[in-house]
């Protein structure tokens, strides 16, 4: 009885499958134009974005460029073990986290403050001018930005001139030559470059706030500051939460351009982060396996963080990135 009904259902299943296949192929034919539009780029994305992941195997080998894959020597977790016992790499890890955290905190506070203050400007022309000027550094390359930063901080740059003029220091400071200052310089550079741009999203959130709330508060005698604290900032709350969570997901992605361009022999103990480490070991010293191991470590941790951040954001009802 049971086997009979099984065979009946299996033939039914087969028929269903065949039918589904037919429908599928018919649809493919119908939509062949859409397929022509996407298939070349799906191949592209596999070659340029997915295929390199295969290169992670290098992290478990003593990779030598001259010989084929099958001839490579497998060494297991040797490179990872080396990294986590290497004092230099532990310093690199500390720098990555410290730089990210400083950027995160400074970036958030400054962008939110700027958005609130721009929103309070009543002269539309002035408001637009301020916004335009505040975006400017975002469009400059990091090479240009680094050239500007190093010039401002040079011995005869304006920072030293002002501090000397005010009598706060009695000798010019070589800012980029003192490792301890690097995190602060990096954080300030990031703020200079991106604060205007990052404020855009908060301004968009503020513009969604119901204007009647402000009117009502005014009638109730709420002061300007009170209105900011009780209406504007709560109005940005959901955007702040989403961006905060997503940024925590990107905590290991501190970027490499400013660190690489502003870094030098004197500040290397504070400037070198994972990405710069990978460039130095991989490109300058040709230690492909060790560099790949470090890069792979960063990417894997980042993926975990990002997915955690994304699901946390969804759980809080704020909507994820996808």
């Amino acid at each position: 009885m049971a086997s009979e009904s099984n065979s009946v259902s299996s033939t039914l299943n087969k028929e269903k499958q065949e039918k589904a296949m037919k429908v599928f192929f018919r649809k493919c034919k119908e939509q062949q134009a859409l397929l022509w539009m996407t298939v070349p780029f799906v191949i592209w994305v596999f070659v340029f974005k997915y295929l390199p992941v295969w290169g992670w195997t290098m992290a478990f080998q003593d990779y030598k460029p001259a010989i084929s894959f099958s001839e490579q020597e497998w060494v297991g977790f040797k490179h990872f073990l080396f990294l986590f016992t290497d004092e230099r790499f532990l310093g690199v890890l500390r720098n990555t986290l410290a730089q990210s955290l400083i950027n995160l905190v400074l970036g958030f506070i400054t962008a939110i403050t700027l958005a609130v203050l721009i929103n309070e400007l009543s002269n539309m022309k002035f408001k637009r001018t301020v916004q335009t000027i505040s975006y400017l550094p975002h469009f400059l390359s990091w090479v240009v930005a680094a050239a500007l930063v190093s010039s401002v901080l040079s011995i005869d740059g304006i920072v030293n001139d002002i501090l000397m003029g005010l009598g706060l220091i009695d000798k010019e400071i070589l800012w980029l030559g003192v490792g301890e200052y690097f995190w602060g310089i990096l954080g300030a550079s990031e703020v200079w470059k991106n604060v205007g741009w990052n404020a855009i999203i908060y301004l968009a959130a503020i513009s969604m706030i119901d204007q009647e709330q402000y009117e009502a508060a005014k009638i109730d005698g709420a002061s300007r500051i009170q209105r900011i604290i009780h209406i504007t900032i709560p109005g940005m709350k959901s955007v702040i939460v989403v961006l905060l969570i997503m940024n925590i997901g990107y905590i290991l992605e501190a970027g490499f351009e400013p660190q690489y361009l502003l870094g030098n022999g004197q500040n290397v103990e504070y400037s070198e982060n994972i990405d710069v480490f990978v460039i130095k070991y991989g490109i300058s010293m040709f230690n492909f396996s060790l560099a790949t191991a470090a890069g792979m470590f960063k990417t894997v941790i980042s993926i975990v963080f990002l997915f955690a951040a994304n699901s946390l954001s969804k759980k809080l009802g704020q909507g994820g990135l996808y």
Binding site: P52, W54, G55, G295, K298
Partner: peptide, 14 residues
Amino acid sequence: TMYFNGGLIPTFLL
């Protein structure tokens, strides 16, 4: 592809 990349060296070799 927004979440991961092969990294510097594998991309270079590709």
